[in-house]
Amino acid sequence: MLDMFTQRRIVALMNGYVHEKVPAELRTMVKLTYEMQENELILTEERPAGQRYQWERMPIARFYWEGDQWKVFASDDQHSWSPADMVVPCSDFEDVLEQVERDDSGVFWRERD
């Protein structure tokens, strides 16, 4: 399990990341959210659903702390997780988040219907 200092550091990093990733003028059409529980963080994109005030959630990436390193998984169209082999596991969360952000292969930041 991650220590409290590391958890708080990641929360502060993610709060800044989701705030900066989506420009203010687009936040009524798309937003990024995340959930952190014990050794896992799931990054999600949300868009307005058919019903008023409802948002459809689409998982983007799952970060999992195991064996002193972060491993990253990508979501497929059925919302199941597969290892993201293009992301090199490492002990620095910021490094794996940067690899997901770059997404040279288009696994995380793809066009969504």
Rank of each mutant, 00 (worst) to 15 (best):
S82V: 11
D92Y: 10
M36E: 07
D68V: 11
F108E: 04
R52T: 12
V87H: 08
C90W: 05
F73K: 00
I10F: 05
E111T: 08
V30W: 01
V11R: 06
A84I: 01
P89G: 12
M86A: 15
L41A: 03
V87S: 06
W70D: 01
E45C: 05
Y64M: 13
R57P: 10
Q69K: 14
D113W: 04
I60D: 01
E56H: 15
S91W: 07
R8L: 12
E20G: 12
R27Q: 11
T28W: 09
P23M: 07
L41W: 00
Q54A: 09
T33M: 06
Q99L: 00
Q7I: 13
E35V: 15
D95M: 13
I10V: 12
D92M: 10
M1W: 11
H19I: 07
Q37N: 15
V107D: 14
V18C: 05
W55S: 00
R47F: 03
V100S: 07
I60Y: 04
G106W: 00
V22S: 00
W55E: 02
L26D: 05
P59D: 00
M86G: 11
R57H: 14
F73D: 02
Q51N: 08
W70C: 03
S80P: 04
R8Q: 12
E45L: 07
D77T: 08
S91H: 09
M29C: 12
D95A: 15
H79K: 15
H79W: 11
A74W: 01
R9P: 00
M14T: 10
D3G: 08
L97G: 04
F63Q: 02
Q69N: 11
Y34A: 07
A61T: 06
V87I: 15
R9E: 06
A84T: 05
V107C: 12
E101I: 06
M4C: 13
K71M: 09
A49L: 12
E25I: 07
R9I: 03
M86W: 14
Y34P: 05
W109K: 03
E45A: 06
E35I: 14
P89L: 11
M14I: 09
G16I: 06
G16H: 12
S80A: 10
T28R: 14
L26F: 04
F73E: 01
D113L: 06
